[in-house]
Amino acid sequence: MGFYAPAQLVQDARRHGVEVRPPDVNASEWDCTLEAGALRLGLRMVGGLSETAGKKLAAGRPYMSVFDLALNRKDLRALASAGALQSLAGHRRMAHWAAAGAARRAPLDAPVLETLPVLAPASEGAEIVADYASLGLTLGRHPLALLRSRLDKLGLLQSEKMHQLPHGSTARVAGLVTCRQRPDTASGVVFVTLEDETGNINVVVWNRLVERQRGELLGARLLGVHGSIERDGDVVHLVARRLVDYSALLGPLETASRDFH
């Protein structure tokens, strides 16, 4: 809905000092709710969870174990992938193990008592990838924060630093592509919005560069831009001179851009 994806709205809320809590079967409603001033993400954010199951879950709290949830394998997997079983089973890998054991079985298949193995939690990067895959956003660090040392070596500035540069200076930045726009009124100019761990960057790509670097412009999920700063009061744009596709640095991270006319 609207111009922004939930990832951008949640980041904006957090930048304004709003605490955002992850979805959890023992705390979330189907919709997102307020918990004493903090935003609790709803089960509707969990990719792959059916609405019926989600609403039933929200009505039947609290739960003592993953078995209590009485859900089918698909819904349990969706919850485990989202990290929404934290309060019952711990981190994602443990949750997946528990979910695999609790999936409803045929009536004759008696529950087996077994000791849970101790699984090491996934790395921060893997957690973020899993967050994006399931929720479309992360409440952990921004993916680019993890890549920052490599981006530094490539001479790529953070959004915050770029915004302090004077009019006319050159800058190199990179960010996740969150929006591409090509309004009919702008005679072929494409506006790209990039996002990094410090904020957004508004990029202007002129017609000629659009044609020359179409592949990078349309294909990149992590886009590098070399360009010059255009400043009009508080409004700052980066006019692109060259585009670089750094998507390979993201590995399996799934990001989405909204593209408009």
Partner: peptide
């Protein structure tokens, strides 16, 4: 006026946000 309008109906698009501070 600071274009702090992400998620605000009608004035959240990038074009609107670059007009607001002006």
């Amino acid at each position: 006026q600071k274009a702090d309008t992400i998620g605000v109906f009608q004035i959240e698009s990038r074009a609107q946000m670059s007009m607001l501070p002006r």
